[in-house]
């Protein structure tokens, strides 16, 4: 996933769309947008940062999970098997991105709307291009800040955005390989 911080306005439309699509209970936001201020008056910057599960390459949540409920699919999506999860909460404290919450006894988090993606793929649709195969947050974004696609496919929309722009990931020093890329400027 790509979040273009130059475009994001913190409107929380994605937050609301996610809550509705996934039926998350009050207080649980699998997708949310942070409102971050840096600097001191009058030299202040304020940025809006969509966060959630980063579907890391090397997800600490998966490694710590004692029940193997948390897994990583071949396409990179990190999933939780609610039938395996014992709700120990270890993954919550292992995640550097505050992405998980224990709801009704099991760990929950963003799934990239995996059911929607799978159903879309089954119908021959392309995730990130066809709304029917794209996560709800991306579909809802009113600033074209959120994008979804296959970063390993050099022809994908995502690869194009990453090539044309400079990006970073959050807390890269933790070496979890997070998979939300934040665009902040054009490529040099």
């Amino acid at each position: 996933m790509v979040a273009d911080l130059r475009r994001c306005v913190g409107c929380q439309t994605c937050t609301a769309a996610c809550k509705q699509a996934n039926g998350t209970p009050p207080g649980v936001q699998w997708r949310r947008v942070l409102d971050l201020e840096t600097g001191e008056y009058p030299e202040v910057k304020r940025a809006f940062v969509p966060v959630g599960c980063m579907h890391c390459d090397d997800p600490p949540c998966m490694h710590v999970c004692p029940s193997t409920a948390t897994r990583k699919r071949p396409d990179g999506i990190v999933t939780i098997d609610y039938d395996l999860c014992i709700g120990c909460g270890y993954c919550m404290v292992a995640c550097p991105y505050e992405a998980r919450a224990k709801v009704d006894g099991v760990a929950t988090k963003c799934t990239f709307c995996v059911d929607r993606i799978d159903a879309g793929l089954a119908n021959g649709l392309k995730p990130g291009v066809d709304p029917e195969a794209t996560p709800a947050c991306v579909n809802s974004c009113i600033a074209k800040a959120l994008h979804f696609g296959d970063a390993d496919d050099p022809q994908s929309n995502l690869s194009g955005l990453l090539a044309e722009n400079q990006s970073f990931r959050l807390s890269e020093d933790l070496e979890t390989g997070p998979n939300i890329f934040y665009l902040w400027d054009k490529a040099l």
């Binding site: 409107c11 929380q12 439309t13 937050t15 609301a16 769309a17 809550k19 509705q20 809802s140 009113i142």
Partner: peptide, 8 residues
């Protein structure tokens, strides 16, 4: 698109 309000 529709904004956050419509989702309510």
């Amino acid at each position: 698109k529709i904004c956050v309000k419509a989702y309510g």
